[in-house]
């Protein structure tokens, strides 16, 4: 068990290093230079521009050779420093992320966990009721084939723009001050519903279909047949089938995490929701290396951490993986 964990941790560490390197490199592949954009916004005399540019280049350490920048980046990272934003100079990137993170987590965690849970329950029910099956299956395929932002735009158009039931943009009513009052919290929830719904619905379809198929497979397995031949009530057989069908769904959850996070970023942009997706979009538009790096770093860490948790959970719930770890039992 410990050896298994150590091996897993090693693999995750390698993945982390590679991912962070790519994360560092990608913004620097973009054409142009963030400082030029910053300076042109200030719009001074041409010779003052040149002085300012060289000042900012030095301030952000962008005048150093690339390898030096790369080492600087790791050094700062290990000290918990993600640098300062260029577009919102001199706010530290950690502050910006800290501000956006609650919105993204508030969208992601409920939509991932709820869609997984509800999808599994609906799928399991569909596996044994013909009528439900006939509606769940086509609907599930439709939902799971829908791109996140497309469903987001559709919801915004129908429920927001046409019917006017929900707001179209922002995390809360912009006329309110951010404070812990009921008015503000209800405004938060009100603005949260549509982006949440579009993430939740798309993921729901996939889980429901997966679970339905797995349950049908498990109910036809040998152990289910044996139990039924020994007169076990349906309740017990289905309990076992549900539990065993859950195992591939846990793996599926780990595989899906990355896609859901990507979907959340796009959905936030659709709804101008002030989370990490929104932040990274403005970062890209302003060539803000440090914001882009910081946000992606958070996503990398988040996805890796979630995968690690799933790995550990899987070992706990499936005895077969445990035996496999110890080598063949005599």
């Amino acid at each position: 068990m410990l050896r298994y964990l150590a091996r897993k941790l090693f693999i995750y560490l390698l993945t982390f290093i590679v991912a962070v390197t790519i994360d560092w490199a990608i913004p620097r592949f973009m054409p142009g230079n963030p400082v030029d954009a910053l300076v042109s916004r200030i719009a001074l005399m041409p010779d003052a521009n040149a002085a300012l540019t060289s000042y900012f280049m030095a301030a952000f350490n962008l005048d150093q050779p690339l390898w030096q920048q790369y080492l600087n980046f790791w050094w700062a990272l290990l000290n918990g420093d993600l640098g300062r934003s260029i577009m919102l100079f001199p706010t530290p990137v950690t502050t910006l992320i800290g501000r956006a993170l609650p919105y993204t987590l508030g969208l992601l965690l409920p939509s991932i966990l709820l869609s997984w849970y509800v999808g599994n329950v609906v799928g399991a029910l569909a596996a044994r009721r013909k009528l439900l099956d006939n509606t769940v299956l086509p609907l599930g395929y439709l939902l799971t084939a829908t791109p996140y932002m497309w469903l987001g735009i559709l919801l915004a158009w129908v429920l927001g723009s046409s019917l006017g039931w929900f707001p179209l943009a922002f995390g809360y009513d912009q006329s309110l001050k951010a404070e812990w009052t009921w008015k503000f919290i209800s405004s938060l929830l009100y603005h949260w519903i549509l982006p949440f719904a579009s993430l939740f619905l798309v993921a729901l379809g996939g889980w429901a279909i997966g679970m339905r198929n797995m349950i049908i497979y498990e109910l036809e397995s040998d152990y289910a047949n044996y139990l039924m031949a020994l007169g076990a009530p349906q309740r017990l057989v289905r309990k076992y089938a549900f539990r065993n069908a859950m195992l591939p769904q846990i793996t599926g959850l780990a595989l899906q995490l990355g896609a859901v996070v990507g979907g959340a970023l796009v959905t936030e942009i659709v709804f101008s929701y002030p989370g990490l997706g929104w932040l990274v979009l403005s970062g890209i538009q302003n060539q803000d290396y440090f914001v882009i790096q910081g946000v992606f770093l958070f996503i990398i860490v988040g996805v890796l951490l979630a995968n690690l948790i799933v790995d550990v959970v899987y070992v706990i719930v499936d005895p077969r993986t445990r035996v496999g770890l110890q080598g063949d039992a005599a």
Binding site: D222, Y240, R243, R320
Partner: peptide, 12 residues
């Protein structure tokens, strides 16, 4: 049963 090898629930 014929399938006695796989007749027991693998996760219990």
């Amino acid at each position: 049963p014929q399938y006695a090898m796989s007749a027991l629930n693998p996760t219990r």
